[in-house]
Write a protein that binds this DNA or RNA. Structure first.
Lengths: 346, 346
DNA sequence: ATTTGTCACGAAAACGTTTTCGTGTTAAAA
DNA sequence: TTTTAACACGAAAACGTTTTCGTGACAAAT
């Protein structure tokens, strides 16, 4: 139950000044070999470690980065955290997490809690509610106080900062092109309402792929779901919406879904309607998830490379932190997606 | 790019002392109404917030808790984090995460990084390697320095601290009892080697359930997998081990698996061998996961209630932090498991 | 004998707070 | 008029570091 030992205690014990102890421990030339040895031995014995908080205060630098995400129980986001933690640790930083739970106010509060000196910079992905409200003042405020932000995945053009995204447009287009190449002509799209930028871009990718192949866009084949509903908790609702799509559009021969759950549910519903996958219906999802991999049949997906995004975001942030002044220009890094072919397509 | 404003700056600007500003902001009776108003208005205008680091140093309290887990890309652990974050935030604490990646040395290093003043206490689940090495000196050291630890899920009797666990023994027993009640008599067990405590307990629960029903334990029905292999990356290996079990023990009519992946793979292999679920084979897994829920057929499981564990752990830790002195007795909280019946059993 | 220089160390400031303890001013009580 | 009390505020210490700038002792150079 002994408290951690401090410089002051070592100094008193050895009958030298605090400064001498500090210098001795950092091997300063100002201190005689004798004293150094004495101090270092004592410090080792008592397992002295400099107090981080004191250092943070003195250096005005915490060596800690804050990450704010909408949800942690989510394969993609936890992969991002893993990436961030990995490079943060490598480069001597800690990671402190805040969850916005997709709520604007929790996002704001969490940022305020951390922005008061606890961290040196943010890595974040914007909550759905914030995207809907389009209220970004907390980001602007943070940045104007000299605290850098790196946004990933869900970003927004209005805020100038470093960003790490995937090419949602191109990824979606690739997926749909694949379906077309495999012979599909009536490709359904299961997507969300448009306020989340990534959903919008994926929808556009879908449309462009169709157009390039001279396939008319049929709005009946597009199912726009209200993403504010928590379908994870109410699979019934999700599946019944999808069922309606399949029943009213019998000729659908492929599905592109903007996330894993939608794609999986589409497979499930299709099978329950007696359609076999991929023979009668090919499916591609957009995700990084575990469901696609372990589903039966396993699902072809567009991978998001969450960990890589996290790593890149961390590097961007730390680079900026450690090159004060430097160039003021912000970069947007695009992580390329991959088409992971599995059993739900030919 | 203006730095955050400090008490000192406000004081200079308003031509009063730092103490006056501090007191005015905290509504001290020592300060006249006039001055209070003036100071508070100014502070509001410049969006003053006390610097957390300075407060931490002064109060010798960071209001931050550290959580060390073996892996974040894992449904159970991310649910625990969510629980921890939830109550931590409610009670005014931040959460800083460290990942041990199942490695002893990373666990030690991570704890050292955080123990030097960055946090007030730990919540952690022990890495596999640490459990194997049985080297717990870093926990003892941390505790002896007056920093409380709460362990969850993977705990160890040697260390005295608060713990949050589930009743692995009883959960497993319940699962097997259910299978027996459903008519199964040749129940296979898919488990891990014994060094991870939870695996051992679940295995014991399996055995006791059999014994109570007078069913002989046949060691041929038990598949012990080497958990150091990363089966998530090598499904083939996992499935082929399970296939061997099924092929050599044709009479198996039920499977109890100690985690989600094993259970799911068992279902997959069984189906590929032409057996239908649950008619020919019933399956119960032990988990909190998303795979069980979304599998086809969906899987009956013993739930671990990860979020609840996280919440409880956070409460235990914060209670201890805020009731210094108090009772020195440590408690072990057992979170009850539930049998979640789905389609893989009758 | 005086100056110069090196050596080894200590004092103090600074980071941003909170809090204890004065202290000068004014009004009320003796 | 003198003592007391309330009032409103400031100085300073403390939390644990690092770093700048002295400074006293002693040896070498003049």
């Amino acid at each position: 139950m002994k408290r951690k030992i401090t410089l002051k205690q070592i100094a008193k014990e050895l009958d030298v000044s605090i400064s001498t102890v500090s210098k001795a421990l950092r091997n300063s030339v100002e201190i005689s070999e004798d004293t150094k040895q004495k101090v270092q031995a004592f410090a080792k014995l008592y397992n002295y470690r400099p107090n981080n908080i004191a250092l943070s205060l003195k250096n005005r630098k915490t060596n800690t980065i804050g990450i704010i995400i909408p949800e942690i129980v989510h394969h993609f986001f936890s992969k991002v955290i893993r990436g961030v933690e990995l490079v943060a640790n490598q480069r001597g930083y800690n990671v402190i997490v805040g969850l916005s739970n997709e709520s604007f106010s929790k996002e704001v509060i969490n940022m305020q809690m951390l922005a008061n000196g606890s961290i040196d910079g943010f890595i974040l992905s914007i909550s759905k509610e914030t995207l809907q409200l389009q209220d970004y003042h907390h980001f602007e405020e943070t940045i104007s106080q000299g605290m850098p932000i790196v946004m990933f995945d869900r970003v927004v053009a209005e805020i100038e900062c470093d960003k790490v995204i995937i090419d949602d447009f191109k990824g979606a287009k690739t997926a749909v092109q694949k379906l077309i190449a495999n012979g599909a002509r009536n490709i359904g799209l299961i997507t969300t309402r448009d306020y989340v930028s990534v959903g919008k871009l994926r929808t556009q990718g879908y449309m462009e792929a169709l157009e390039e192949h001279g396939i008319d866009l049929k709005s009946n084949l597009i199912l726009k779901l209200d993403d504010s509903k928590n379908f994870e908790e109410d699979l019934e609702a999700l599946e019944s919406e999808i069922r309606v799509l399949f029943e009213s559009e019998q000729k659908i021969d492929a599905i592109f879904a903007v996330n894993e759950l939608y794609a999986l549910s589409a497979m499930k519903v299709a099978r329950s309607l007696g359609r076999s996958i991929p023979k009668d219906l090919q499916v591609i999802g957009f995700t990084d998830g575990v469901l696609s991999k372990h589903a039966t049949p396993s699902m072809t997906t567009i991978s998001q490379h969450g960990q890589q995004m996290g790593e890149k975001a961390a590097h961007l942030l730390i680079d900026r932190l450690e090159n004060e002044d430097e160039e003021e220009s912000y970069t947007t890094v695009v992580i390329s997606t991959d088409l992971i072919e599995r059993e739900s397509t030919f």
